[in-house]
């Protein structure tokens, strides 16, 4: 395994807020073009880890490197796309106005900007709702618009905190198809999720519990290791819950 292949490298990362220890020694490498899923109960430290990857959260000790550069770094910003758990939209504005605002924060020509807006809205299937005010969007539509915005600047790493919450299965399928299309273009995607059938679609999974990575591997590897038939059961085994099959 060569270094250049590792897009993301997390070394001995600890994080505490006062006395509360949130991350207790995370080690993780993610390769280029991988779809990596972070699985774990709420409060396990998923969002903290994700924010450290984006550079919005400091590590207490250890190191987070993306594309061989230590976070936080300004030069990484243009290469990372981030979608938080909150939709982070200006609801009083239309979708187009939201997109126009966020796209002009990046160094793109006028033509490129137009093209990008069209492209990302096509991916999330919102082209028809372009001029609708976001306040009138449904929950799933907001989530898709939020996802579209995080892809505006063609990032090589896409970090998504629960991207498909509130989406119906058909839409979720089409979103995952676009993830796979992005993957083929060499984009590395990190997603956090609660949904097991979604976790199955990841190349590799990291199970996180109480600030520790309890298991890392492909869905099949994890099932084998836990000696269970489905991922949900594996999740329980690695979570420390005794599972009777």
């Amino acid at each position: 395994m060569t270094d250049s292949n590792n897009v993301i490298q997390v070394d001995h990362v600890y994080k505490s807020y006062g006395k509360q220890k949130v991350l207790k020694g995370i080690d993780l490498t993610i390769k280029e073009g991988e779809i990596f899923g972070l699985l774990g109960p709420s409060g396990a430290g998923k969002t903290t880890l994700v924010k450290q990857l984006v550079g919005l959260e400091e590590v207490s000790s250890g190191e987070v490197r993306l594309l061989n550069e230590k976070q936080p770094s300004l030069s990484l910003i243009e290469r990372i796309g981030y979608m938080a758990q909150s939709d982070a939209l200006y609801t009083e504005l239309s979708a187009r106005e939201n997109l126009e605002f966020f796209v002009s924060l990046y160094n793109l020509t006028k033509h490129q900007r137009k093209e990008r807006i069209k492209e990302v809205m096509r991916v999330v299937d919102l082209e028809d709702a372009m001029d609708k005010v976001v306040a009138d969007y449904s929950g799933g539509m907001k989530r898709r618009l939020s996802l579209a915005i995080s892809m505006l600047h063609e990032p090589v790493i896409l970090i998504l905190d629960e991207p498909t919450v509130g989406m119906d299965p058909i839409l979720r399928k089409s979103i995952w198809e676009s993830f796979n299309a992005l993957k083929k273009r060499g984009v590395t995607i990190i997603v956090t999720t609660h949904v097991m059938d979604e976790a199955e679609k990841c190349d590799r999974l990291g199970m996180i519990r109480e600030g520790r990575l309890t298991a890392v591997g492909s869905p099949d590897e994890l099932k084998k290791e836990a000696d269970v038939k489905n991922l949900e059961a594996a999740f329980l085994v690695f979570g420390g819950v005794h599972y009777e099959s």
Binding site: V54, G55, L56, L74, I77, E78, I80, Y82, A84, Q85, S86, D87, A88, L89, Y90, T91, F102, L105, Y106, N107, I149
Partner: peptide
């Protein structure tokens, strides 16, 4: 509170 500041901070702004 609605997270747009975080989005701004993860942009080149």
């Amino acid at each position: 509170t609605r997270g747009t500041l975080e989005r701004l901070l993860s942009s080149p702004l």
